[in-house]
Write a protein that binds this DNA or RNA. Structure first.
Length: 282
DNA sequence: ATTTTCCCCTGCCGGC
DNA sequence: TGCCGGCAGGGGAAAA
């Protein structure tokens, strides 16, 4: 499930090959993949457009075009982008859209679950802060994401801390895997009300979010399930995960058993000894 | 305003 | 063996 580190891995790979290329045409095999726009208008808008640069905001991948428009891609759970200097090399199944560049290179969008979306924003505003305001919160790896900023965001929320971390309007880019990993790293139980965390816990959580996301980017993301990069390669972060997907295994820190539960309607992995439900005594 | 629930979609897996 | 319910989960809409 592509979260920030996986989308960032894809962004970096595409940023190395796409700028300066010009789109020849796009073939849309699944009309749902380009909602809410009509496939015909998407085809017309993309044909002939040049790629200026490749950006990312939260889990959104941004292809900035020289027409002023931006192609916004969200892979959701099972979306994949396969790059090839020639004809597509990705899987034959679940193909949703195919972008062909002048010269013959291709970018293939595959998506088993059909939740992923490609849409066009016909303005340059996607580069601006205002466009995302209210929908996406701070970038966790940006200088703006400080412990104080996290504390301010958590102070007015009574929902479980894990639900708040998954809320993209608070911090952008954290999904189920890295929420569990960050909370374990901080020693915080996911069910704790966000506003109940103390300054020390918030500081640990802030540090854990950044370090886990950075480690995951360095590993090329987590391929726990279907995630693949633009070359079809798996990430390596899954072997470094401390709790996610490890129910029944011993905790690396205390040797106690990792348990699986349900928080905010999501499968949730915790070490009850390292992440006490009650929090610190004071 | 905030929080929770439901829904979308397909493949996989355990139970009977 | 085969059917079936449940689960997986990002995000947006709807409901509470």
């Amino acid at each position: 499930m592509p979260e920030l580190p996986e989308v960032e891995t894809i962004r970096a790979q595409l940023a190395a090959v796409l700028p300066g290329r010009r789109i020849a045409r796009i073939e849309i095999m699944d009309a749902k993949a380009v909602e809410p726009d009509e496939p015909e208008s998407v085809r017309a808008a993309l044909a002939g457009a040049g790629i200026v640069d490749v950006g990312r905001r939260g889990k959104y991948l941004l292809l900035h075009l020289d027409t002023g428009s931006t192609a916004i891609i969200h892979l959701r759970m099972t979306g994949q982008l396969h790059w090839s200097e020639a004809a597509p090399t990705g899987p034959e199944e679940h193909r949703r859209a195919l972008i062909t560049f002048e010269g013959g290179a291709t970018l293939l969008f595959c998506d088993l679950r059909r939740f992923g979306r490609l849409r066009l924003e016909h303005t340059v505003r996607t580069r601006s802060r205002e466009f995302w305001a209210g929908r996406l919160g701070v970038e966790p790896l940006s200088p703006a994401f400080t412990a104080d900023a996290l504390a301010a965001a958590l102070s007015r929320r009574s929902a479980p801390i894990k639900a708040v971390l998954l809320d993209q309007s608070t911090v952008a880019g954290i999904g189920n895997i890295y929420a569990d990993e960050a909370l374990f790293g901080a020693g915080v139980h996911p069910q704790r009300p966000a506003s109940s965390l103390g300054p020390m816990e918030i500081a640990r959580l802030h540090r854990a979010i950044r370090s886990r996301l950075r480690a995951a980017i360095a590993q090329g993301g987590t391929s726990f399930d279907r995630y693949r990069d633009t070359r079809g390669e798996r990430g390596a972060m899954q072997r470094l995960l401390k709790v996610y997907g490890r129910a029944g295994e011993p905790c690396t820190r205390c040797r106690g058993a990792i348990t699986k539960t349900r928080v905010a309607q999501r499968g949730t992995y915790i070490c009850l000894r390292c992440q006490p439900r009650q929090g610190p005594p004071c």
